[in-house]
């Protein structure tokens, strides 16, 4: 019998904003090989629920010392539904392999179509549920780094329109495929929030990318030299550039640059938070446009 736990009820409405945390029954090893093995997490229920608790605490800023309090916003926190799924009878197959072990790194990769189909098998309070963000939690013995796929918005979905540097976009109410994350049960620091922000961003309506490599343009990253003083105009407000990249500095060969930080002393949540000058990733907060953008995206989905 599967354990489907409604951890936080969220808004009392149809399709509240929903985060789903799933114990990964099987691993595809390696990713895209068609070979499936049992995920060790299914032999360690305590590790699964420990990770679930940590991810929830991290997202809502409840880990002691966490500076970034994005989801603890009183307009957001009470309206988030959180569901966990533990199904020891799910078996080992392509359908139950929600995570792949990358063949060229130690990265866990979400199998997002499998995740979407898997979640559709379960109900809370007698009803299936719509998912915005899904975490598949693994105890892989060899792969420990988390990763995320952005959300694939439903084309034509209603939503809240916005402008970015003169272009017209939409914070969509609904997705075709939710934002998906593969994460290890030993998760710590602010990795759950870092991956959440990737996952809630969109392939077509504003993506949030890694800032610790010389990335391609995204909502939170631009390319060019010299770095202009203004980073972007989002929803009618002008955001400044981060001219120095806090204490890290931009490597000379880089062409990318970022938006100014909320706290100039520490790297952004999407940057290399392990290099915070204090050595404490929990000191890191977002850059200014990412904070606003993610908040708006969540509030838009909550308005559906």
């Amino acid at each position: 019998m599967a354990e489907v736990v409604l951890r936080l009820a969220g808004a009392a409405k149809t399709d509240p904003f929903t985060i789903c945390l799933i114990a990964n029954p099987a691993l595809e090893a390696p990713w895209n090989s068609g070979t499936f093995v049992a995920d060790p997490i299914m032999a360690n229920k305590a590790a699964f629920y420990g990770a679930v608790q940590y991810i929830e605490d991290c997202l809502f800023g409840r880990v002691a010392g966490t500076k970034e309090q994005l989801l603890s916003n009183p307009a957001i926190a009470p309206n988030v539904r959180v569901i966990s799924i533990w199904d020891a009878a799910a078996g080992i197959s392509s359908a139950s392999a929600l995570v792949g072990q990358d063949g060229v790194s130690d990265i866990l990769v979400a199998r997002r179509n499998a995740i979407q189909a898997f979640v559709a098998n379960y109900q809370v309070n007698g009803a299936s549920f719509f998912v915005d963000i899904a975490y598949a939690i693994s105890s892989s013995l060899t792969h420990t780094r988390a990763s995320a796929w952005f959300t694939s918005d439903a084309p034509g979905s209603p939503g809240v329109p916005f402008t970015l540097d003169g272009g017209a976009f939409t914070h969509c109410y609904y997705n075709d495929i939710p934002g998906t994350i593969a994460i290890h049960s030993s998760v710590s620091d602010i990795t759950p929030l870092h991956e959440f922000q990737h996952a809630i961003s969109s392939y077509t309506n504003g993506s949030i990318t890694d800032l610790y490599v010389d990335s391609s343009p995204a909502l939170n990253c631009k390319r060019g030299r010299p770095i202009p003083s203004n980073f972007c105009v989002y929803a009618g407000s002008t955001y400044l550039s981060d001219l120095t990249r806090d204490s890290l500095g931009y490597p000379p060969a880089w062409k990318s640059y970022h938006c100014t930080l909320i706290d100039l002393r520490y790297p952004a949540v999407m940057d290399d938070y392990y290099k915070a000058s204090t050595g404490n990733p929990l000191d890191c907060q977002n850059d200014t446009v990412t904070r606003e953008f993610v908040t708006d995206k969540i509030l838009a989905k909550m308005a559906r």
Binding site: N113, S207, A218
Partner: peptide, 17 residues
């Protein structure tokens, strides 16, 4: 190693479908 990390990250910026 820098290019390797850049490509790993870039992989996830492309819609896998």
């Amino acid at each position: 190693l820098d290019r390797y990390e850049q490509l790993l990250s870039m992989r996830f910026t492309q819609d896998p479908d």
